[in-house]
Computed example of a mutant assay.
Amino acid sequence: MSDTTTRALSLLNLLQTHRHWPGSELAGRLGVTERTVRRDVERLRELGYRIESTPGAAGGYRLEAGSAVPPLLLTDEEAVAMAIGLRVAASQRLVSGPETTITALAKLEQVLPAPLRRRVVALAESVQPAGLNAGAAVSGEVLGELALACRDHERVRFTYTAASGEVTRRRVEPHALAPADRHWYLLCWDLEKDDWRTFRVDRLDAVEHTRVLFEPKPLTAEQIEEFIFVARSWVRQAVEADAVMDLPLDRMRELFGQWGQGASDEGDGRTRWPVGGADFRETMYGLSWIPAGVEYTTDLAAPARDELRETLQRMLRALDAPPPAVPPQRLRERAPGR
């Protein structure tokens, strides 16, 4: 393989792994001049790759979908079949390593021409794997667009429909896509809220790329996992209540971290915090995390309120009663030298 061909393939690989590249950065990575980059871009265009170029100091190159599938040794039918399979695998979580499925889907759909994309959408919607308890339907196209934005660190806008039915337009810096409990979640920095937010992807549409890049804020894998775990917990529970604490909202968020999501300022140095669970025991566990010494009230309704009161009264009686006698066998086991 000639040096020219090797360099052109290296350039193609760079264009496929980032949404936009400045010409100077491509030249630096390839160890050539910007003039050579321009020549190699023309060679790729002749092979069928549609590469958009923009002039100026902030200009560069961007791989776009063309009028036909570029030479990937795939027919149109094979490309459609692969895209459908990746969409189904991503939306149904059929394989391990879901981030690999998403990035592969994003890379393939980035170069699919519009007619083939429409075929993929139509066919993928009719494919339902048997024997699966699937979650809410997720648009493969939306997953692909969000995957590109996460990969390229590009700000996006989208429309989000909350569980309450409220529809809002959001502007965010996407950080990660993660599956959990048959749903996909987008973890991102919300530019209006100036804070991290997690969105259910099936409630999200009308994704708009802004072409504004950002420097991602550092997050560990453990922090991402905690964000997603908290988001999973924010579904309607069988037993729900609000706790109004004698604690300012800022201090409450400092103490609760991500578990403070949903809290609101009640005024007079108090904070309202929603808490719930599958039964009164889980709700009681949530209330037990309110810091020591912080007084609070709760609107926990009957019968959970009565069940919780009866359980706490028995606990208090048990704590006030003399401890049970230790059996002789246990005393012998505790004896020194044993």
Rank of each mutant, 00 (worst) to 15 (best):
T6D: 13
L11S: 06
W21M: 11
G23F: 13
G23I: 00
S24Q: 12
E25Y: 04
L30T: 02
E34G: 06
D40P: 05
V41T: 07
L44G: 11
I51W: 06
G56C: 13
A58S: 15
G60A: 04
E64K: 13
A65W: 11
S67C: 00
L72Y: 13
L73Y: 06
T75E: 11
A83K: 10
Q92Y: 10
G97I: 03
L105N: 04
A106N: 09
A106V: 13
L112S: 13
A114R: 12
A114K: 11
V120K: 07
A124S: 15
P129W: 00
A134V: 05
V138K: 10
S139V: 05
V142Y: 00
V142L: 07
C150H: 02
T159K: 04
P174V: 02
A178W: 07
R182A: 15
T198S: 12
L204A: 05
V207E: 04
V212D: 13
V212P: 01
K217L: 15
K217W: 13
E222Q: 06
E225T: 12
V230F: 14
A231F: 07
S233I: 04
E240Y: 04
A241F: 08
V244G: 02
M245Q: 00
M245T: 01
M252A: 15
Q261G: 15
G267F: 06
T271E: 09
P274L: 13
D279C: 09
Y285L: 15
G286N: 02
L287F: 00
A292Q: 08
A292P: 01
A292N: 06
G293E: 09
L300I: 14
A301V: 09
E310Y: 02
P324T: 07
V326Y: 03
R330E: 12
A335C: 02
G337L: 13
G337N: 07
